[in-house]
């Protein structure tokens, strides 16, 4: 297993897409933080009677859940709100898809499997490497947001435990994201398919629980079912503001662990049963 990890990390560090996606992530995160400063400057030019509603979310990595911080923008605020967009999971999905499916498309998985390594250990080694890649991307994005925000508005104040919990929860949910992406990539085995499906899962698949919820509510003639609350990517954007809501933290933890477990189980099951071409 250690040999497998040794090889997987060697390949990851030589994967150009990992560096390109991380660079895109950091650049867009910095631009997003700047966009809030620009919005602030514009807001000062607009008479109060003209300005209505919330600040729109122009930043790629920012969400309108940041509005709670209006008038109190800081490095910590930028850090929290950087988790509000889809850019990070989308880019993780691209990196994972390219990383996992490369071995299928180049046929190099044969070199590994033919050396007697078990399918489960091959899967787990890809999962661990992908998890490290995803966590690094997350930390770099958070760092870029924190530094840019601190330069523009100062570090800010928040409960240290809350900040730590936020980071921990985001790491946990992005590990679940990695679990989803790795499983999809192992199932599809083709670069194009895996990239496309990974992006769709992050961007549009929330429609599925929403549609099911709407259908159930129609049947029950009540508006009480909201399955999208248990959708991983909805939870990621929900935990992008400080202070944290305790109920949301608990729900996010359960959703992350359950999602990771279910997708990893099916990913391993499918990989173990199928031949390697």
């Amino acid at each position: 297993m250690l040999n497998l990890l040794h090889t997987e990390f060697y390949k990851l560090w030589r994967q150009k897409s990992f560096y390109i996606c991380t660079l895109v992530l950091v650049v867009f995160t910095v631009l997003s933080v700047f966009s809030y400063e620009l919005l602030n400057m514009m807001a000062e030019l607009i008479p109060p009677e003209v300005a209505q509603g919330d600040i729109p979310s122009y930043g790629v990595g920012m969400s309108t859940s940041a509005i709670g911080f209006e008038g109190d923008m800081s490095g910590l605020w930028a850090l929290a709100t950087s988790f509000g967009g889809n850019l990070l999971p989308v880019l993780i999905g691209i990196v994972i898809a390219l990383f996992v499916t490369a071995d299928f498309s180049h046929g190099t998985l044969k070199n590994i499997a033919a050396k007697g390594f078990s399918r489960t250990s091959i899967y787990v080694s890809k999962l661990i490497t992908g998890a490290v890649a995803g966590t690094l991307m997350l930390l770099l994005m958070a760092g870029a947001a924190l530094v840019t925000g601190t330069i523009l508005w100062g570090f800010g104040t928040a409960d240290a435990a809350d900040v730590f919990t936020l980071l921990l929860m985001q790491v946990l949910m992005h590990l679940a994201t990695v679990g989803v992406m790795v499983a999809i990539s192992f199932l599809l085995r083709s670069i194009g398919g895996a990239v496309a499906v990974n992006i769709c899962v992050v961007s549009f698949a929330v429609l599925i629980p929403q549609l099911i919820s709407a259908f159930l509510n129609y049947l029950l003639k009540e508006d009480r079912v909201d399955l999208s609350k248990y959708w991983l990517f909805s939870n990621i954007t929900e935990l992008s503001a400080l202070p944290l809501n305790g109920d949301a933290v608990l729900r996010c933890s359960i959703v992350a662990v359950a999602t990771f477990a279910v997708f990893t189980f099916f990913g391993v099951y499918s990989f173990v049963r199928r031949d390697i071409k």
Partner: peptide, 22 residues
Amino acid sequence: YPSLYPNMTARENLEAHRRLLG
């Protein structure tokens, strides 16, 4: 067919395999 990483050099391909074999 030879299963190789096209974006790596000959040495890098073999280095990856050397690590795999420990």
